[in-house]
Design a protein around this nucleic acid. Structure first.
Lengths: 189, 189
DNA sequence: TGGTGTGAAGTGGTTCACAGCA
DNA sequence: TGCTGTGAACCACTTCACACCA
């Protein structure tokens, strides 16, 4: 498999892709390309996907429940082992195999199960407090869907996905006449 | 309001924020800061948020329905005016005020209502074909949740959110001993 | 011949540092 | 004095271009 074929599939430049792959070592063959299976193994190892990673989800509202039903995480080597909510009884559990517990039991669960990753889909006004408790319990990585900047110690990784912002980014380029803002020209003359 | 206060709230560097704001013109006062209301107005105008932007959603599965229930889009000036699905009758409509139509009627709707933005939450294997039809009908911006690279003409803007990938990004930094890969040192020695 | 690996150049975004002004 | 606006330096990432080798 050549870098140009891979690059096309990934939607990037071939040089880019070759450069990136060298960080895994160098096992392409000049004139031939990359051995597919070795590539898969090497990437999998670097990404730490040898075994399932346990994850918890906090906030089983609309978005949270959808995420619980979402199969994509399992496919990529994650296992959502439990969900937590302030009102677990209110959660519509149809089609959900993951147990939903009260958020008061979260700390205990995280500690006992040595959970390192959490998905946060709580209302924005509770995002920081829940984050604090998670970090305090030992969680080191957060995927947040709240439109706010979470304050965490530097040893904790946060990835924030703001859905409205993602749509906003598309919208900006659609409504504007020109595809990009010209930095030499103020947007408002 | 000073740039440093805004920067702190946004989680960025003050210089960064000042530099960004100059693209809107220059209306900060040296020694004083920025006038809040003018700032809001200027940003709103640039982002084209004076009036509601109509959006359609395609693919009313788990994620799609959650997105329909999600209030964040409305808050940011978007209105999801209709949803489309291959089996609209199967969609659980509880708590959804947006009408769900059959995907066959999508093209007509897009053209008649001059829809320019679409949210795509269809299964990955149908993402490209639905994209083609949307683009063909006049949609110019797509927010996709399918883990695939969509092929579109250059005048169409695509923003892809791959939820599993977002979690993967967190996971990488959590499981690795060091916070970052040292580019001089191959990950696999 | 074809395609990798990589110096070197290019690009664009970030940060510094400070002149200038309320 | 305090804080903006911005030239210049900095930095990280991207792309080019080509030596090198199966």
């Amino acid at each position: 498999m050549s870098s140009s074929a891979l690059a096309k599939a990934a939607g990037v430049n071939p040089s880019q892709l070759r450069r990136d792959l060298t960080y895994l070592g160098q096992f392409g063959t000049r004139g031939l390309g990359y051995p597919v299976q070795e590539l898969i193994d090497a990437i999998r190892e670097v990404l730490g996907r040898e075994q399932l990673q346990p994850v918890i989800l906090v906030g089983a509202g609309n978005l949270g429940v959808a995420l619980l039903r979402y199969q994509g995480f399992q496919k990529e080597g994650f296992e959502v082992v439990a969900a937590f909510d302030a009102i677990p009884d209110a959660v519509k559990k149809r089609g959900i195999s993951v147990p939903v517990y009260h958020v008061d039991t979260m700390r205990k669960f995280v500690i006992e199960n040595d959970v390192k990753l959490a998905i946060l889909s709580v209302p924005v006004e509770h995002a920081q407090e829940v984050t604090n408790e998670l970090v305090d319990s030992g969680v080191q990585g957060l995927l947040s869907f709240s439109p706010t900047v979470l304050q965490v110690p530097e040893f904790v990784t946060v990835n924030s996905v703001d859905l409205a912002l993602e749509l906003e980014q598309v919208s900006f380029f659609v409504k504007s006449e020109k595809p990009l803002v010209d930095p030499d020209e103020p947007v408002i003359p």
